[in-house]
């Protein structure tokens, strides 16, 4: 199986980049602040809101400074008082530096806090290992009561944020830094908690989460279809609660499952998929694509780091070939 494979689109070379997920979020939050008096924006000096006109919601924007533990604790106090705080920090700070506050203050109390976690995965690029978040999905999917969402593009970011707004409990939303490619225009509507089926096929299932992994999955599926391997692509944008039904249905109808994520290969999407399939005793091999057991190698932008760390179409194709025994 050596179908023609093209490299993923590079946003840095795109002529008219669509907004990044964090910019979509920022603009939507201004709308939420003005439409709903319960909404509060708690910032940790991210800079995301510089120059933003909050209108009459301006008094409910509070910059708590560079202090993520206080950020999470204060969000809990606000939520316990009937507010809906959106807390703003980077994914790695939300889930490791302030993990205990996320666990005890927010998740344990099942409070309606929305954690807007930018710089998910390798999107911090050349900012380096201190700013990469390759652990956040593993950490957040452990926490009871927490919903964990990874939007795929500008449209799904807005859709999932609107749907998450109605949830009574806490929500972790993994956002990126720079603009990423749009999903195909014929993609079905995104629904929180439901896998998005982007392609149908009966030989292989590729399960992906996040902007680039989903695009890699689609490209790999095209290449596989061209050589006669009909491939299903599931976008598991909601890591928790997992759409087990869709996953199991696809796995049952396939001869192998490959997962793709911008995360350490252990603990995140691949692990949750492998656990589900193993527990049910489904007779399908699972192969996981992600960053191996090391800090991300190389320096550079997000797309460079993805390639450098083995999150590529070629890797997906190789894993599929090996799993299918071809």
């Amino acid at each position: 199986m050596t179908g023609p494979v093209t490299a993923p689109a590079d946003p840095q070379s795109a002529e008219a980049p669509v907004p990044s997920s964090r910019e979509v979020y920022r603009d939507l939050l201004v709308e939420f602040l003005n439409a709903d008096e319960r909404v509060v924006c708690l910032d940790s000096d991210t800079g995301l809101f510089n120059g933003v006109d909050f209108g009459k919601g301006a008094e409910r924007y509070v910059n708590l400074g560079i202090a993520e533990q206080n950020l999470m604790g204060a969000a809990a106090g606000l939520a316990r008082s009937g507010r809906t705080p959106y807390v703003n920090t980077m994914a790695t700070f939300a889930t490791t530096r302030a993990l205990e506050q996320l666990k005890l203050d927010i998740a344990l109390n099942d409070l309606p806090v929305r954690i807007a976690a930018t710089h998910g995965g390798l999107s911090a690029g050349h900012l380096g290992a201190t700013h990469h978040a390759l652990e956040d999905l593993a950490v957040t999917r452990l926490l009871p009561n927490l919903t964990v969402v990874v939007p795929t593009d500008a449209t799904t970011t807005a859709e999932l944020l609107r749907q998450a707004q109605e949830l009574p409990g806490p929500v972790y939303i993994r956002l990126g830094r720079d603009a990423t490619p749009d999903l195909p225009s014929d993609a079905p509507p995104v629904e929180l908690g439901k896998a998005q089926r982007l392609r149908e096929g009966d030989a292989l299932t590729i399960v992906a989460t996040g902007p680039y992994p989903v695009h890699l999955a689609l490209e790999a599926a095209s290449a596989l279809d061209a050589v006669g391997v009909a491939t299903t692509v599931l976008n598991l944008h909601t890591i928790k609660p997992l759409d087990t039904r869709a996953l199991v249905a696809a796995a049952r109808a396939s001869r192998a499952v490959v997962t793709v994520e911008e995360h350490w290969v252990s603990g995140g999407l691949g692990s949750t998929v492998a656990e589900t399939i193993a527990e049910l005793g489904l007779p399908v091999p699972v192969r996981r694509i992600g960053v191996g057991d090391r800090f991300a190698a190389g320096t550079g932008g997000q797309t460079h780091l993805l390639k450098r760390n083995g999150i590529t179409v070629e890797a997906v194709l190789a894993a599929a070939t090996e799993a299918l025994g071809r």
Partner: peptide, 22 residues
């Protein structure tokens, strides 16, 4: 609120006090 791991109460208090202000 459940407390016990130390250092959690005052940040929560900041949130309660902010909510009262709002």
């Amino acid at each position: 609120m459940p407390t016990g791991s130390l250092g959690h109460g005052l940040p929560q208090g900041v949130g309660f006090a902010l909510a009262a202000r709002f």
